[in-house]
Design a protein around this nucleic acid. Structure first.
Lengths: 334, 334
DNA sequence: GGAGCGAGTTGACACGTTTTAATCAGGTCG
DNA sequence: CGACCTGATTAAAACGTGTCAACTCGCTCC
């Protein structure tokens, strides 16, 4: 079929123009006369030419793409964020490279290196922990970075949701409902979301005049349904609390499932509330109470911030945007 | 900080060697003397050098990456496939570029063009329809292609699950359970999975001696929870059947939710079965019966096939692998 | 009619890497 | 002592595109 690869210069020869003109047709169509343009476009179709993106990127010094590094692609929360990102990015004629860090520093660092090698214009990242060293490394190489769902120090853009408020909201709700012994099921405290939500939970306890130890902690390595199940089994063994607050809905769904299997009634025996309000929460065995976040907006705004910074690196003022979360009460804590 | 971008030649100067040696350190470490290697690696660290992937790709003619084009990143089925892909690919020191076609031909074509521009070594794709023209275009440019969850003609690799058998399994089960009037909630018939599963469903009817019209069809444009909800509302308006078979679990979850809200009891008033057996199915308001597929395997095997073809394009024999699905009965059809 | 102009086009170079053949040092063998 | 080999290093030539200064051509204006 196509003998070898067909490049810009073969197109040029066929259309009877110079390679420079073909390049102009691709990148600055307005600069070339309509008739010439048609001839070139015809040649492109005839030869089935596809621009070599690497060459373009090499020449330009940067890729028309941004990276998105999330903690877990299996979590609908991040899928929704990604939708927001994707929509903005494709409007602006860029591409997204989606990477999964699986909450691991090592994978995060590897992903960032790949993105740096690809010379992406910028990176959206939900860091796996508090240590932003690898992010700083990236910025030192002139890659714009916006933190997603993670607030940032002043010299960086970030878009987040007030996790302290969310934790407070959840636990206050559980306390209002009459709970006295609580449990917090969470991923590692190195993950900002986890520690912030705990902070909010503790604040709620203080406000209610309760000691911090009224909140038992159950930490699992991975914030997914398996983690939730494991936590629930430990809680079952150790004696159930009145109410359980989970650091995200995936955990909560796992907890819910394990409890159901053990014959524990939610919310009669134990009240349960999650975090993120993912689509599946409402459809659970017992519809799940949760803390809703403006997920799609998170991705959308973050991307706009990032692309603005890319387009005008100097005139750009870093901003930290913080949304407020919202309590959604359903069957699991009624 | 880093003045301009630091390239291989600045590293070379600093280490007191030639650029070629630096390249060798990166790509063929065994060719360079240990002492020299250390010096170069030190220089790399000192300068914070990151290899420019575009230049490498340009020179090599292809990217150490493969593309994965799925119908819906929001669907846990594809997320699981992606995990299988990712695991194999990273073992072989490649990268995955994940693309979402959203079941749209246009987005599919755009994604394939981007992948072609990036000069990926190969592409794994679940086509949005029967028309494989864009896939053929890609192959004409020497990009290896493996079809995922979609059986292929002989000149192409594919890894799929027997959807006819799956449809048969589901409907036979519903019939065994005593259903007489059935509905099939599905995405567009242009999507192979949808039409194949219908074929299986009809076969089951024939086997049972029932006419094809015993299976009412309800087709929605998108195979997600919203589509399911819409279908359920139409069914409610038109008069409910005894049993509903959904072309995937996302649809089934939407149907289930809409029915619950309308006060319809599952499985007492209507039996329900989905397809894919995604993780959330078991946790539904009513745990969902489903057809299980070896999802992770699908991604894993497909990737192995693809990379084998890339590594040895000539000695490669195309194969079509087909797995058998499995019936999982839960509350929704008990 | 020549200077000046603007639109359209061209040719050559640069981007950063990998590869290939050539070079070099050091050692072995005849 | 020179021919020959081995292993380590180098210089130079690609890879395919985008940019930019230079150039052409047809016009207008004085």
């Amino acid at each position: 079929m196509g003998m070898g690869t067909v490049g810009i210069k073969e197109v040029a020869r066929r259309a009877g123009v110079s390679p420079g003109t073909v390049s102009n047709v691709l990148n600055h169509p307005e600069r070339v006369r309509a008739e010439t343009r048609d001839r070139v476009e015809q040649a492109i179709r005839d030869l089935g030419f596809v621009r070599n993106g690497s060459a373009a990127t090499l020449r330009a010094g940067q890729n028309r793409a941004i990276g998105l590094v999330v903690l877990d692609v299996g979590n609908p929360f991040f899928v929704e964020v990604a939708r927001g990102v994707e929509d903005v990015v494709s409007d602006r004629d860029h591409a997204v490279i989606l990477c999964n860090s699986g909450e691991s520093f090592e994978k995060e660092a590897r992903n960032l290196r790949v993105l740096a090698e690809q010379r992406v214009r910028g990176v959206l990242i939900t860091p796996a922990g508090e240590d932003l060293a690898s992010v700083e490394t990236l910025r030192a190489r002139d890659v714009a970075v916006v933190l997603v769902d993670h607030s940032a120090p002043g010299d960086l853009c970030s878009v987040s949701v007030d996790d302290v408020a969310g934790g407070d909201l959840a636990v206050t709700h559980l306390l209002d409902r009459g709970a006295e012994r609580l449990a917090y099921v969470s991923g590692p405290m190195a993950i900002r979301q986890c520690s912030e939500r705990r902070k909010g939970a503790r604040r709620a306890l203080r406000t209610a005049g309760l000691p911090v130890r009224a909140l038992e902690e159950m930490i699992v390595p991975e914030m997914n349904a398996n983690g939730g199940r494991a936590a629930a089994e430990k809680l079952l063994a150790a004696g159930l609390p009145d109410a359980i607050f989970c650091a995200n809905d995936m955990l909560a769904l796992g907890v819910l499932r394990a409890l159901s299997q053990a014959g524990v009634k939610v919310p009669d025996d134990v009240a349960l509330i999650g975090y993120d309000d993912i689509e599946f929460s409402a459809a659970g065995t017992v519809p799940l109470s949760s803390i809703r976040q403006p997920t799609y907006q998170l991705g959308k705004i973050a991307t706009e911030l990032l692309l603005d910074e890319c387009d005008d690196p100097d005139g750009h003022a870093h901003q930290q945007i913080m949304f407020q979360p919202e309590l959604v009460v359903r069957e699991s804590s009624r």
